[in-house]
Design a protein around this nucleic acid. Sequence first.
DNA 1: GTGGAAAACGGACTGTGGGTCCGGTTATTG
DNA 2: CAATAACCGGACCCACAGTCCGTTTTCCAC
Lengths: 192, 192
Amino acid sequence: MWKGCGVMARADAVRNRRAILDATERLLLGADPASVSLDRVAAEAGVGKGTVFRRFGSRTGLFTELLAERAAALAEAIDHGPPPLGPGAPPADRVLAFLDALVDLAVGNLSLLSAHERACAADKYTDPTYLRWHTHLTTLIHKAAPTLDAPFHAHALLACFDAPLVHLLLTQGGPPRLRANLQALTTPLLTA
Amino acid sequence: MWKGCGVMARADAVRNRRAILDATERLLLGADPASVSLDRVAAEAGVGKGTVFRRFGSRTGLFTELLAERAAALAEAIDHGPPPLGPGAPPADRVLAFLDALVDLAVGNLSLLSAHERACAADKYTDPTYLRWHTHLTTLIHKAAPTLDAPFHAHALLACFDAPLVHLLLTQGGPPRLRANLQALTTPLLTA
DNA sequence: GTGGAAAACGGACTGTGGGTCCGGTTATTG
DNA sequence: CAATAACCGGACCCACAGTCCGTTTTCCAC
């Protein structure tokens, strides 16, 4: 996206960008994600529809950036935070810590995840945030169990975070059930 | 759906139903699933758009029935076919056989799966075909490893059949990679 | 056969949402 | 305080899901 504007020089552009991002979050808190149209986002943000598209390129672009923002703290914790989420702990422990963190993120941003998935559809697997998560998991799995097809199992674990599925599971057992079962799925795999 | 028509008495109704189903399959073979609109389906089938909706209620309904049709043979094999897919084999073996069969089905119907997923979205988990698969897996997993949260792990395994993911994996290793890894994921879980 | 009611048909119509375009506006810079 | 480049708004376009109703077809009773 970023139509050639190197640094987004103008102040109004920066302001509107934030306004759109905030408006989107606000709408996601309200009704179901499917009803968050870009018309509505523009209205809520108090800008024109054109502005939304100029800033984010498309519906997909908007939700991609929003997700990236929400995932920033996690990325930081993974790269430079304390173990076991950050570097230093054994790979298998880091996998479990990462999945736990992802549960937290999913629980706190279910609507966003849902909207993001709907918008990205097939492009989900080229989304920068997904890619980052997948790379991280792949690396860890490979270190913990070098004989496994690490990229596959990274995809398989991330597939458990399909938004409608998470929603379903959260209504039947809540976060603890999710956490416990992800661990139950991962542990025998990495220690076999 | 089925607007009160108990048995679909009239011949033209039956004929058009088939024509629509066949036309949809034909279109799915062609371009990408996203471009298969119901207008196009109606045109290809040589019927009016209203007829499509009267028969199937919605886009979701159409793809749901098409998937059910494609899954019928598998359902039959599960219930009354020879082991290990059918009854008689140890539960763990039946799980692996079922996953193998699902890979075959997915490979042969990727476009349909993709279109079905897009159309169902959040309702995916109430789709009769999904429900049948999930129930089957849940039962087997519970028998093979009674201490596990069988419904969760059934969902987790089925999540690996997300259409875009399957597409991605098929272009990087083909069916054998999928089969081998599903086995690598399942075996330690059920024997732990 | 035939007549008529029930069932089904077709395609024009509506509403909505993603994405584009361009005339007007505003921030920046010298 | 220009001048200019970036930016803004919202009217506009298109495609698609889903609805509606006047017309046609099927089928069954006679």
